[in-house]
């Protein structure tokens, strides 16, 4: 379980990523920017799983790429154990990469089809010779295959000989090879069948207990995120709109967007369905190249008032619940944050 009294292992402060939109072929000029990630802050504690949810295009995957330094942040800082890693390069960046690894969304494209499983899982050791096992590299690769529940005899096979779930296990084994402290999972199960999803999620939980990993778990499936996460952050159009413990987000959501999302989760129990109010949002997600003023969600929000267009709501504990001692007192970026009990499950 998360130990929030300790120092955070990863701290993100005011992270911004704008992708420039250019025009012209010979003389390029910037005509605007897609604000994929706009001023996001959160922390990750050792041994914790932070889930990040949000619909397609809200900037979840960009956050993952920024944390992995696959994209350079436009502004903001990423602190790993107190050191800002967002501006590192060369040797220093390579050293940090040993400790932060990633599991990719699509197991069909994240493994090089021309390499054997042994080469794929062993590649981290070739890149970081100082982290390679002293003796037999093959033995370590076999051990990793065993850890993720694959037959070590598969070491000489190629990725296309495996099913989706098995491939994702290979991807996880590659991520584990360097003994990282943080694993960033960018929708690690959304490309898998439902039955296989559970196996992979359970494997990830087991590995977390075994190696004390911290996960940043990005997904759009609310039930899976609830299952694996200690804390959950909800993103909308490049902004974090609500963040808190999983009980706070799932049982006491105060942001209207979170409430709308949760009201759309299918419920297996018909009686519970009866008493629930479904919030149907109208309209589309606005373009991140030209987001609405003030609150980003105001164009689709049933609570929107003039104030929402003028003033950007800050991500903080709402005034109304400032003295509350329950899970309802968590950060929510809404001027009119309020619980709406009839939308949550159960």
């Amino acid at each position: 379980m998360a130990d929030t009294t300790r120092e955070p292992i990863l701290e993100v402060r005011n992270l911004v990523k704008h992708f420039p939109l250019t025009q012209g072929i010979v003389f390029r000029r910037q005509v605007g920017a897609v604000r994929a990630v706009d001023d996001i802050s959160f922390t990750l504690y050792p041994g914790e799983t932070l889930g990040i949810v949000g619909e397609s295009g809200c900037g979840k995957s960009t956050v993952a790429k920024l944390l992995m330094n696959l994209e350079r942040a436009t502004a903001g800082e990423i602190f790993y154990k107190g050191e800002d890693i967002s501006k590192l390069s060369g040797r220093a960046l390579k050293a940090v990469r040993r400790n932060i690894q990633m599991v990719f969304q699509d197991p069909y494209t994240s493994l090089n089809p021309r390499m054997t499983v042994g080469d794929i899982i062993g590649e981290p050791f070739d890149i970081h010779p100082e982290a390679a096992p002293k003796g037999d590299k093959q033995a370590r690769v076999r051990e990793l295959l065993d850890v993720v529940g694959l037959n070590p005899e598969y070491i000489n096979r190629y990725p296309h000989q495996f099913s989706g779930g098995q491939r994702q296990r290979i991807g996880i084994a590659r991520g584990l090879a360097l003994n990282p402290e943080i694993i960033i999972c960018d929708e690690p199960v959304s490309a898998l069948d439902v039955s296989v999803q559970a196996q992979v999620i359970n494997l990830m939980e087991k590995l977390q207990d075994e190696f004390g990993l911290s996960y940043l778990f990005i997904a759009h499936d609310l039930s899976i995120v609830r299952h694996i996460s200690d804390r959950v952050g909800v993103m909308y159009l490049g902004k974090m709109v609500e963040i808190g413990s999983d009980a706070a987000i799932y049982d006491h959501p105060t942001h209207p967007y979170t409430q709308a999302l949760l009201s759309a989760v299918p419920l297996p129990d018909p009686d519970a369905r009866e008493g629930r109010e479904r919030i149907i949002l109208t309209g589309d997600v606005p373009s991140p190249a030209n987001p609405p003023s003030g609150c980003r969600f105001r164009t689709r929000c049933w609570k929107a008032q003039d104030r929402c267009a003028e003033e950007l709501p800050l991500l903080a504990v709402p005034q109304r619940y400032a003295d509350a001692d329950t899970a309802v007192a968590h950060d929510s970026a809404c001027h009119f944050a309020e619980e709406k009990p009839q939308v949550t499950h159960a």
């Binding site: 992995m68 990719f104 494209t109 994240s110 970081h128 590659r174």
Partner: peptide, 11 residues
């Protein structure tokens, strides 16, 4: 993705 994966390993 596998090229991204190699980059994220520090290749």
């Amino acid at each position: 993705d596998y090229v991204q994966a190699a980059r994220s390993l520090g290749a």
